[in-house]
Amino acid sequence: MRLLSVAARRALLVLPLVVAPAFASEPAEGGPVNLLEPKGGLMFWTLLVFIVLLFVLSRYAFKPLFAAVEAREKALEDAIAGANRDREEAQRLLSEQKAGLEHSRVEAQKIIADARSTAEKMKADLLEQTRQQQVEMLEGARRDIEGEKSKAIADLRREAVDLAIAGAGKVIQQNLDAAGNRKIVETFLASIDGAALRKR
């Protein structure tokens, strides 16, 4: 609102001044001189002289006059722009570096974690495998022992039978009643077998 009032006051003040020259008329000879009367010739000369002056001065006076200053300013501006560019570049490189570092760290972490899990898995596998083998070996050993034992028992039995037969032969040589004797022997052997089995 203040803006409006200032502008309005300004406009109101200016209005009569704007209108004034319009009412200015050619002064009569010897009459009062109108200081606000614009003269075309003078305006023409002002325009012409100013344009010529502007052309000549800007070309031959201000250009050399400001050449040194402008060169210095330009150098300064370039230096500042260069410094800014360099700083931005450095910033960019730094962030890139940081990102790379971060990336490698993550990578390393991942590799370590992978390795750890692999090792863990391998260890578990190996353990499992060992246990399996152990169990298998145990099983095999037990089977072997069982086989050996039964073979030994069979061997022993055959041997015992042979021995018994050999013994019996001797007995028969003495006592020809083989049938009756044999029965005795076998009964005896059965008793041995049962006792032995029970013993085990």
């Binding site: 020259p21 606000l36 614009p38 075309g40 003078l42 305006m43 002002t46 325009l47 100013f50």
Partner: peptide, 9 residues
Amino acid sequence: GNISVTATL
């Protein structure tokens, strides 16, 4: 000091 000159400027 002439309005024609200042007005042109």
